[in-house]
Design a protein around this nucleic acid. Structure first.
Lengths: 276, 276
DNA sequence: CACAATTACGAGGGTCGTAAAAATG
DNA sequence: CATTTTTACGACCCTCGTAATTGTG
């Protein structure tokens, strides 16, 4: 029996145009995709591709299959939505995160889905996050590494990059990118509660003087009133209006970019799905 | 992501009324079915059953899910049919079987699906069947045991029981069932080409005298003209009109009932499916 | 006490990714 | 020679079945 996941792959192949591009989009390897398509051909008993040795193009059967697959997936999606309506509302979701950026994003997404939900979130370190997940202290945790534990399902969540927010008059303001080493000797504004980013400041920015502020209102005041640089996140893009008279310059060091993973107990798998 | 196979299980649970009955119908164990339903509940984020410790009954959410699942499965079924239309017609299917009964059944099914197809079938023993499958000498083989080989997909096919066909005047004719041992001393008509059934005759019916006939026309003439008993198959039920003035009595010995398995290479999986 | 559902646990099959091969423009 | 597809192979995850547990009528 073919499965919905097979049909999703097929549709993706059509949209991507080539097997390798589709594999990229699906976050799987090309061989895996090739095999999935071969499986469908065996199921249907007919070829879906016209193949030249280094090109696999959907033929007339394949195009029909794509069209039919879209119909099936559409009804399946409707089913998902209908069932989601019946799902327990998100009365109380507790999020644990190792970094503030992904935490805010998650809070916003869940609040958008259910404005009445009680969403709480807090920063913690990886060990406490993992144990808190099993204790049901957190229903969702955000970590820097995939969680390999039985009964836990993990998904890549998002990537965050740090940027430096500068007044246009600053000497670094017209740069395409900045290396951390170039911040040597600067005085910067720093919002506390950095989570896993704290290590970056502690270890690689020992020549930077930080003025730490933990109260958000005061922090934004500081930004508006001073000409001191501060850090911003790529996750702010399009979510927070950029401060006036500030330009943002990316930090080029690989250490200034992190990929986060989001995990939940299997029984709360749906929480993972709705954070899409 | 939930899959079509999960939805099939759900619908089956609804139709069967209870998990264990559905498991029976699906040829899987109760625990497997329980887990599949739990998986769906996790996917949807809502309970589908109202559970008392020894009873799991679909609740309102579950009934909605069943209804939606039927729609999804229906579109998937349509897709299957559309794709089957595009499949290569069965220009040449070669069947190998270890017994004549299942072989005839298979030939009939395939011929019904495609009257223009060239279906050929022959009897052979298990070893030759398996090697013939890999050599593409046969596209479908029928054996007494599941085939455990890479690249081969096997399915339980059907069960055949032997019966004794007797004139009503025969001393055994009014029995509910007969044991092989009771045939001792009889003279019976036997159609040659018994395949795997031959062993039964050779080993357990040494006290029976057989009149062997390999030509079908002559054999039916013999049946009609004599009062000698002969063997019939449960597979004849409803497919061949029973000979006039004959009654059929089951053979009670377990050895007189066999389960057959049908196998194909993965690339010919569709041939397996259409023999449903 | 037989039966339904669930949990625990080890085994098997399917799918995956890496690596290598073959072919093309 | 980079790119695309396909095959080979080993590893892992998921689902399965058996067995044991719990609770019920």
């Amino acid at each position: 029996m073919f499965e919905l996941s097979d049909l999703e792959k097929l549709v993706c192949v059509h949209e991507a145009g080539t097997l390798s591009a589709a594999a990229e989009a699906l976050h799987i390897s090309q061989p895996a995709l090739t095999r999935a398509m071969q499986k469908l051909e065996a199921e249907f008993g007919c070829e879906l591709f016209s193949r030249t040795k280094n090109r696999a193009e959907l033929n007339v059967n394949g195009l029909l299959a794509v069209s039919e697959a879209k119909k099936v997936l559409s009804t399946a999606k409707r089913m998902s939505e209908r069932m989601a309506d019946r799902a327990k509302s998100l009365t109380s979701v507790r999020i644990g995160s190792c970094a503030p950026g992904p935490m805010w994003v998650t809070e916003e997404k869940l609040t958008a889905l259910d404005p009445n939900a009680e969403i709480s979130a807090e920063l913690s370190d990886n060990d406490l996050l993992l144990s808190g997940l099993h204790d049901d202290k957190y229903q969702l945790i955000i970590t820097t590494e995939p969680v390999k534990a039985p009964g836990v399902v993990t998904r890549e969540f998002l990537t965050e990059s740090l940027l430096v927010s500068l007044p246009p008059s600053h000497q670094l303001a017209n740069r395409e990118g900045i290396h951390i080493s170039e911040l040597e000797g600067q005085t910067m504004l720093l919002f506390s509660e950095l989570g896993v980013w704290q290590r970056l400041c502690d270890e690689k920015m020992q020549g930077v003087r930080f003025i730490v502020q933990s109260e958000m209102g005061a922090f934004t005041d500081l930004i508006n009133l001073s000409v001191l640089p501060n850090f911003d996140s790529s996750l702010s893009d399009g979510r927070v209006e950029p401060p006036l008279n500030r330009v943002r310059v990316p930090l080029l060091d690989p250490a200034a970019t992190m990929t986060f993973y989001i995990s939940a107990l299997k029984k709360h798998k749906r929480l993972l799905d709705i954070t899409g």
